[in-house]
Structure formats: structure tokens, C-alpha cells
Write a protein that binds this DNA or RNA. Structure first.
Length: 430
RNA sequence: GUGGGAGUAGCUCAGCUGGUAGAGCGUCGGACUGUGGCUCCGAAUGUCGUGGGUUCAAAUCCCAUCUCCCACCCCA
């Protein structure tokens, strides 16, 4: 390397990996608010938090999500650990939740076990609006117990309640049933057969999917294919009796809860483990990736992972998209202000200022204490820039008289307080 | 993985058909060492995304490459 090149290398600016980003204040206060609200709402429904590893054995994901899916075949961050086992950054949470259920013998707990988890997931896709390589999901799962449609419906009620509390606008619930291992394979063959008949009317993507994953053809975004797709047989006409009964019950349960939904025969989940009820919630302001929540039932998964036969259903909220939608609707929080800015002058006053800051903070007020002495005018200017409500003025006059000056920045009014009375006043007025 | 658009100061951008950089906002300092959002003055920050080519001369033209944005695929 030449000297010039070395110098350049040295000065190289690091930047976040493609598809990852820094979340900064004040945006992060919105993230916290979303997470806190989720915790509150989920707690009301009896869910407990589970914290999971961010990476797992690759095989766990391969088996649960499906070897042939895009997620597993080309989107995982997979690497070899030093002991030569293949591990992967989690592309979703459900598989790990199931692993934890089995590993911790949760079938011994009162059933069903209701868990939620919040955290980053990783998929190596091309980033676009509402899609990142490190993205965040709020995930909830109901494991064990019965496969009562009431459970699916209550789960949906819970997520709708959360969105409602957050003020998410333009939400739309789409539901579908994709059958189970009895009726779905038969339907897929029927669908494939019908697709072959209209093959020449389909684009290259759909022609490929026709063989690999015929259900996905239904979800095609091409206008030109919609007419053909409308005429294809729908799975709702081909569900087995138990699945149809189940689906009807889910709809009835939603109606009982006053939850509006639209049936969407195009809604087919991409992950192998889903069966019967699937749902998706879309929201405003999201560009082409407009699903803010997706979920469904996956009764067979636990057994597939070596656990006892266990009913299960769950959903994942795309937190990035949820927040994007809130921001598009103008729900961006204001930058954090301060209750009190302490404008102090002189060494003697500084000791008093430190004491004042400590006591004010102990009482729960946000306080800015400038670390170095500033000209008085500048201090007040800083107070305004930091959006402080009050300036506490501490100079020689205040220290010698024991009467502190409190200035209300918005009005310019000032008043004197003895040290003890100041807290009283602020408690009443903040 | 495929396609389209864009990269000039911290931010938003100007820079005509080549003559090696500017504005506004913001930041910091001063006017103004006990009274703030105004005003005025001043300063700092750019290898014009990066590398190469054409040219006496490139932010400007050509090629490559990287990054970001949007869309496809797929998914939250």
C-alpha cells in the first residue's frame, strides 16, 4: 500500500452496514413509547415477556421456516461458530420461542403459555421503504392449550387494541384460512392444475411460482394477472370440514368482539409452518411494504422441532413499519425539553447550583446544569434552545440573600423563593 | 439477485454550454462579564461519494465502483 493510500485508509469514515441504521432522539422516544404500550396492553391479556438469544443453530430456522423459503435459502446471516456448528442470526422469533418452550419444559406450566418478545431480527434483503436488514419485531405467541378459535380472535383483538392505543391510522385486518395438512395439499394440486391451463396468461414470476409455490401466485401484484387470478379456485371452497368449521368460528369470534375484517383469499403466508387461520394488518403511509403485522396458527411446528404435539398461534409486528406509519401521520414526538435550566454565576453559586440540581432531580424534575460558567445572557439563550420551562438563576445576590430567582421562560416573569419553597412551587406548577 | 433515481458544508440546496466552490438554516464566538427567542459582525466545517480516463484545465464530459432512496422478488 502506498503512503497516500494508507493515509486514506486511515481516514476512512466508518458507516453503518447496509440496511442497518442508528435510531436517534427524539425518534427513540417514540420507539420507547411503542414498546411500553405493547408491554402494557400485552400484560392486560396475561402475556409475559420472554427474552431470547439473537442467534441460534441454523438448523432450527431451516426446519421451522422451511428449507425452500427465501428467508432460509438466501436471506439468513449464517456463519460457522468456532466449534464448527452453523449458527444464524434470527430472521424471526417464532422458531426460538418454540425452542425455548420445549427446552424449558413449558408444557408443565398452566396452558396455554402466553409470551411476547421485542427485538431485532436479521434478513439479508435489498433495503427499501419499511424494510431493513436489521429490523425490529414485536412478537406474541400463544403456546399449548386448545386450538379454540377464541384464542386466535383474542390475539387479534389484542394487537388491534395496541394499534388503537398508539393511534395508528388506516389499519385494515385481512384474514384467511390456508387449511391444514389434510386439505391444503389437495387444494395446492388443484390450483396448480388450474394454473397450468392459464399458463400463457401469466408472467415469468408467476410461471415459476406455479411450480415452486402455487399459493404465492394468488398474491401477485401484477394488474395484468388479476383477472385470471379472480377466476381461480379458492381455498375457502376446498377446506376440509374441520378447517371450515374452524374458520367460521374465527370469524364469529371476531364479530363477537366487534372487530372488522376483510376476507382475503390472496393472503397466503410465506413461511412453511402456518396452517388454518392467517392474518395480516396493513396501515397507512408505508409504501409498498404496507403490512405492519402478520401472523397465524402453526399447530404442527412444535412437533416438527422435537417437542410434544402443541397447538400454537402468534403474530409479529414490524416495529419499523409501525413507527414509520405513526411518523407519517405526524406523531413525531418533540425533542426532550428540560424542566429547569440552572443559570449560575460565580464559584460560590456553583456549589449551590450543584445542590439545587441534585435536589430537583431527586424530586423528579429534568434539570440542565451547565458545567462551566457562562455569560448570563448566553445561559438564558441556552435555556431557551433546550426548551426549558424555567430558569433557576443563582448568582451572588441569591447566594447571600438565600432567596433564589426562578424565571418562567415563556412569560419572562420572575419570582424569588427560599430554597425550601422552590420545590413546593415547582411541584404545584409543573 | 433484478430494475429505476440520487450523491456538492451538520441539514436543505445553487453552481448555465469545462476555468480547481457558494447561499440559507444550524453550530460556535463577539457586539452584550445579572436577563433569553430579535438584530448586526465574525469563525469553523468540503480531498464536490470513491477510483480512473479525456483535457492546458473537471463539481461539470466519459468509464468503473460504492452508498443511499424507490420498486420487483420475498416478507414484518
Amino acid at each position: 500500500m502506498s503512503e497516500g493510500a494508507a493515509k486514506k485508509e486511515e481516514r476512512r469514515k466508518f458507516q453503518a452496514i447496509k440496511g442497518t441504521r442508528d435510531l436517534l432522539p427524539p425518534e427513540t422516544t417514540l420507539w420507547s413509547r411503542v414498546e411500553q404500550t405493547a408491554q402494557e396492553v400485552f400484560t392486560l391479556y396475561g402475556f409475559g415477556e420472554i427474552r431470547l438469544p439473537i442467534f441460534e443453530e441454523t438448523d432450527l430456522f431451516a426446519r421451522s421456516i422451511g428449507l425452500e423459503t427465501d428467508v432460509v435459502s438466501k436471506e439468513m446471516y449464517t456463519f460457522e461458530d468456532r466449534n464448527e456448528t452453523s449458527v444464524s442470526l434470527r430472521p424471526e422469533a417464532t422458531a426460538a420461542v418454540c425452542r425455548a418452550y420445549i427446552e424449558n419444559d413449558m408444557q408443565q406450566w398452566p396452558q396455554p403459555v402466553k409470551l411476547y418478545t421485542i427485538g431485532p431480527m436479521f434478513r439479508r434483503e435489498r433495503p427499501q421503504k419499511g424494510r431493513y436488514r436489521q429490523f425490529y419485531q414485536i412478537d406474541a405467541e400463544v403456546l399449548g392449550g386448545s386450538d379454540s378459535p377464541a384464542i386466535d380472535a383474542e390475539l387479534i383483538e389484542m394487537v388491534m387494541t395496541l394499534f388503537d392505543r398508539l393511534g395508528l391510522e388506516g389499519t385494515q385486518l385481512h384474514i384467511n384460512s390456508i387449511g391444514d395438512k389434510n386439505c391444503r395439499p389437495k387444494y395446492i394440486e388443484l390450483l396448480r392444475a388450474e394454473l397450468r391451463k392459464v399458463k400463457d396468461k401469466l408472467g415469468p414470476d408467476s410461471q415459476r411460482r406455479m411450480e415452486t409455490n402455487p399459493l404465492r401466485v394468488l398474491d401477485s401484484k401484477l394488474e395484468s394477472e388479476h383477472e385470471v387470478i379472480e377466476k381461480l379456485p379458492r381455498i375457502s371452497q376446498h377446506l376440509c370440514d374441520t378447517c371450515r368449521e374452524n374458520y367460521d368460528q374465527v370469524k364469529r369470534q371476531l364479530a363477537l368482539r366487534g372487530i372488522a375484517y376483510t376476507q382475503n383469499f390472496r393472503l397466503v403466508r410465506g413461511l412453511d409452518y402456518y396452517s388454518r387461520t392467517t392474518f395480516e394488518i396493513t396501515a397507512k403511509g408505508l409504501g409498498s411494504q404496507n403490512a405492519v403485522c402478520g401472523g397465524g396458527r402453526y399447530d404442527g411446528l412444535m412437533e416438527l422441532l422435537g417437542g410434544p404435539p402443541t397447538r400454537a398461534t402468534g403474530f409479529a409486528i414490524g416495529q419499523d413499519r409501525l413507527i414509520l406509519s405513526l411518523q407519517e401521520a405526524g406523531k413525531t414526538p418533540a425533542p426532550q425539553g428540560r424542566d429547569v435550566y440552572i443559570a449560575w454565576m460565580g464559584e460560590k453559586a456553583y456549589a449551590t447550583a450543584i445542590r439545587a440540581a441534585k435536589n430537583l432531580r431527586a424530586a423528579g424534575f429534568t434539570v440542565e446544569l451547565p458545567p462551566v460558567e457562562q455569560k448570563f445572557g448566553k445561559a438564558l439563550g441556552q435555556a431557551v434552545k433546550l426548551r426549558a420551562r424555567y430558569a433557576l438563576i443563582l448568582g451572588d445576590n441569591e447566594v447571600s440573600s438565600g432567596e433564589w430567582t426562578l424565571k418562567t421562560l415563556a412569560t419572562g416573569e420572575q419570582a424569588k423563593f427560599a430554597e425550601g419553597n422552590l420545590l413546593e412551587y415547582l411541584k404545584k406548577n409543573l
